[in-house]
């Protein structure tokens, strides 16, 4: 891997978005993911190699999060740095020379207005190379179904924070399942457990953003 690509990966892992960003303190004033990706592409570096280095960086920061070595703010900075990279890679996605891992449709289920957890998962999954369609909060089953019709090969993520909205989540899973029996659905949120996820008919449960990324990687591997 060339040194510039490695440095871009390091910028993503450390959440160094661009030169103007004061974060992290020890990289202040240095070029960030934005400038370095531009330079790398100008120098003819393979876009796919940049993407893979950045995905590996996102996995590393996710693992650090899992070990409590970093916290949500560092994860968010890393996701922002990743976004700066993917902005440069957009033309390569559009031309097909770089492929997204798939489409992930996510939303907080009807009756629930909480979105911080959902936003974190959304950003992190996107940072891991997925095309993300974020439907927002208080999403009714019909809205999920409409979105799935447009992307029938997608994976669906449902979020809820309240125990009362588990019922709504369960209903959403059932309505999606009735029309798309083989679709993969992952659920997450404070009141959930693996057992509840299984009972409602979801394929997977993710307790945090990294869990969602791991689960998505596993189903992609299996398919």
């Amino acid at each position: 891997m060339n040194e510039l690509v490695e440095t871009i990966g390091r910028c993503v892992e450390r959440g160094k978005i661009n030169k103007a960003s004061p974060f992290p303190g020890d990289m202040k004033g240095l070029d960030g993911a934005d400038e370095l990706t531009h330079q790398a592409l100008e120098a003819g570096t393979d876009a796919e190699a940049i993407l893979q280095a950045c995905i590996a960086a996102m996995v590393r920061i996710g693992e650090k999060f899992g070990r409590n070595e970093v916290f949500v703010p560092e994860m968010l900075m890393a996701a922002k740095a990743m976004k700066a990279v993917t902005e440069h890679l957009k033309p390569f996605f559009q031309s097909g020379s770089v492929q997204a891992k798939g489409t992930f449709i996510i939303g907080t289920v009807a009756g629930d207005l909480h979105d911080i957890g959902k936003n974190l998962v959304s950003m992190f999954v996107e940072g891991n190379g997925w095309n993300v369609v974020d439907l927002g909060v208080d999403v009714k089953p019909e809205k999920f179904i409409d979105a799935i019709r447009k992307q029938p090969k997608c994976v669906v993520g449902l979020s809820a924070l309240l125990t009362t909205t588990i019922v709504s989540m369960s209903k959403t899973v059932q309505e999606i399942r009735a029309l798309f029996p083989s679709i993969n659905i992952v659920v997450g949120g404070a009141p959930l457990t693996m057992e509840i996820a299984k009972e409602m008919g979801a394929n997977g449960y993710a307790r945090d953003p990294q869990g969602a990324v791991r689960w998505l990687a596993a189903i992609r591997e299996a398919s």
């Binding site: 949500v72 703010p73 900075m77 996701a79 922002k80 979105d115 911080i116 936003n119 974190l120």
Partner: peptide, 18 residues
């Protein structure tokens, strides 16, 4: 305020506010 920050692409500040 938090929702606005998330919408405007500043999730870190949005998370801190929340």
């Amino acid at each position: 305020w938090s929702r606005r920050l998330f919408r405007e692409g500043d999730p870190v500040r949005g998370h801190f506010v929340d």
